[in-house]
Design a protein around this nucleic acid. Structure first.
Lengths: 245, 245
DNA sequence: CGTGCGATTGAACTATATCAAATTCGGTGG
DNA sequence: CCACCGAATTTGATATAGTTCAATCGCACG
C-alpha cells in the first residue's frame, strides 16, 4: 500500500504527488533493516552510497569532540531521511545513531538520482526537506546559544511534539512516544545531566508537562511555548497544526 | 568577464562548468545594489521572490528572540548566497543583515528555477551549497553547545580564515579582512561582550592570533585549531587548503 | 534477590553574566 | 592641529547559572 511507503507521507505533504510520481516512488528499490538501540548507523567520515529513511524508532545526529563529549544536533522520527545530505556531499560529517530500536530502509543514491532526474518535482521536494532540516539546525543554534536550561528543554519538547503531530505519530490525548534519557536530553541541549534533571523538575512543577523517559504529555502548550520562546515557523509545516491543550 | 561573475567561482569550485552552463550563467539577469552597514536585507517572515548573492562585505544570518537578544547563526562572505533556501521555502525564518557596507546582487527565483531546469548539474551544485550551509549550522550547534569561550572564538576564526582562503579573499601573509565587533562575536558565540573581550585576550596572550576588529591574522594555526577542536571536514572544501603558519 | 542503569539529591566549585566605570580610538568639525 | 564625540574595548567587582563529584534511591530485569 502506498500510504505505508516510508517516503510517501512526508513527500506528499510537500507536494501532492501525481500518478507518475507515485509509480516512480513505488518502483524505488528499498532494503529494510532493524537496528537495535545505541548503534551507529552512519559514522562521521563515512563515504556512503546510500541514504536511509527511518520507519520506526528514534535516531539522533551527533558529533563527538576530542574530549569525548557528544553533542546531538537533531532528533529524527519516522518519515525522516537523516542523511539525505550524503546525496551531494562526499563524506558524512556527523554520526547518526539509534536511540531506541529502529526500523529503517536503505535506498541507493543512484536510485534517488534517477528518481530526481525523472521527476524534478520530487527532486525539489527532497531539496526542500534538506532545507527544513537546515532551518531546524539554525533554531538549535539559537536554543543552545541563548536560552536557559528549562527554556532549552521546553523548546526541544515543543519541537518534537509538533513534528510528531505533523507525522501523525501522536495520540488523541496530545501525548506522544519519545524514548529519551535525561543524559541524551543533556547531549541535545548542551547541559549536564544534573542540570537537566533540575530543569525537568521545574517544567513538571509548573504543570507544563509530564515526561517519564518514554512518553511525553504536554499539559499546558501555551505556557511551555512561552517559556521556550517557541515560534513554529522554523519548522515550515505549511498548514497550521492545532494542538489539544 | 566570467571569472568576475558573482556566482561563478563558487559554482565552478563545486563542478567544472561546461560551455552551455557558462552561457546560461551569463544570461542570468542580475540586479546589483549597495547596502550600508547594519541594515536588514531580509527579515524573518518575509516572503521573497528573489535570492541574493554577496559580492563584497560581510553579512550575518541571525534571529532575535522576544527578549531582544540576537543570535547570529552564520557569517556570509563574498560568493555566498545566504537566502538560497528561499527558493523552496515559503517564508524566511531568519534575518539577514549587513555587518559592513555590502555589495549584493539580486536574482529572481523564477530565473534560478529556469536555470535549474536547463542544467541539472547547476541545480545539484546549488543544492549542494545549501547542504554545506546546513553542515556549518550543525557545527555551530556543537560550537555553542560544547566549547568554552576561548574555544568558541577560536573555532569561529578558524572557520572564517579557511573560508576566506578558499574564496581567495585572504592575503599572502595569511591574514584576511574581517569586520566584526566584539559584541557581534558575542552574538555569534552566545557569550557576553565582556567574556568575549577576556577570551580574546586569552587568544592574543597565547600568541595564537591578532585581531583588531577589521583584520584577522592567525599566527599559530595548529595551536588555534587545537584549542578550537577544529576539524575542517564539515566545510566540505574538497581539496585540502594549505595554510601559511 | 542481586545487579545495573537511570533519576535524584547535596555540596562545592567555576565559567560566564551582569553592572558600572574607565579608557582607547577613529573620525569630524572648528 | 586640536578638541571633542560616540562607539568599541577594557577593567573591576559582584552575582548566578550551570558543572562536577559523590552518594543515594528506585526500579526493571535476569
Amino acid at each position: 500500500m502506498l500510504a505505508a511507503h516510508p517516503l510517501f507521507s512526508k513527500l506528499d505533504r510537500a507536494l501532492s504527488l501525481n500518478g507518475n510520481e507515485r509509480e516512480a516512488l513505488i518502483r524505488l528499490p528499498l532494503k529494510a533493516a532493524t537496528i537495535r538501540a545505541d548503534q551507529d548507523v552512519v559514522r562521521e567520515g563515512d563515504h556512503s552510497m546510500r541514504c536511509l529513511a527511518l520507519t520506526k524508532g528514534l535516531l539522533a545526529t551527533s558529533k563527538t569532540g576530542t574530549s569525548g563529549k557528544r553533542q546531538i544536533m537533531a532528533f529524527h522520527i519516522p518519515g525522516d531521511m537523516p542523511d539525505l545530505q550524503g546525496l551531494h556531499l562526499e563524506t558524512l560529517d556527523s554520526d547518526i545513531r539509534t536511540l531506541s530500536e529502529c526500523e529503517v530502509v536503505f535506498i541507493e543514491h543512484a536510485a534517488i538520482h534517477r528518481l530526481c532526474n525523472d521527476s524534478p518535482r520530487i527532486a525539489a521536494a527532497l531539496w526542500k526537506m534538506t532545507l527544513v532540516d537546515a532551518s531546524i539546525f539554525r533554531e538549535w543554534v539559537v536554543n543552545v546559544g541563548q536560552r536557559t536550561g528549562p527554556s532549552r528543554l521546553a523548546h526541544v519538547f515543543c519541537e518534537m511534539m509538533l513534528r510528531m503531530e505533523t507525522a501523525k505519530l501522536s495520540a488523541i490525548d496530545g501525548s506522544c512516544g519519545l524514548a529519551l534519557t535525561q543524559s541524551q536530553l543533556g547531549e541535545a541541549t548542551g547541559l549536564s545531566t544534573v542540570h537537566i534533571n533540575r530543569s525537568m523538575q521545574t517544567l513538571r512543577t509548573r504543570g507544563l508537562l509530564s515526561f517519564d523517559g518514554h512518553h511525553l504529555t504536554i499539559h499546558d502548550w501555551d505556557g511551555l511555548a512561552e517559556l521556550a520562546d517557541f515560534r513554529a515557523d522554523y519548522l515550515h509545516l505549511g498548514s497550521r497544526v492545532e494542538l489539544a491543550n
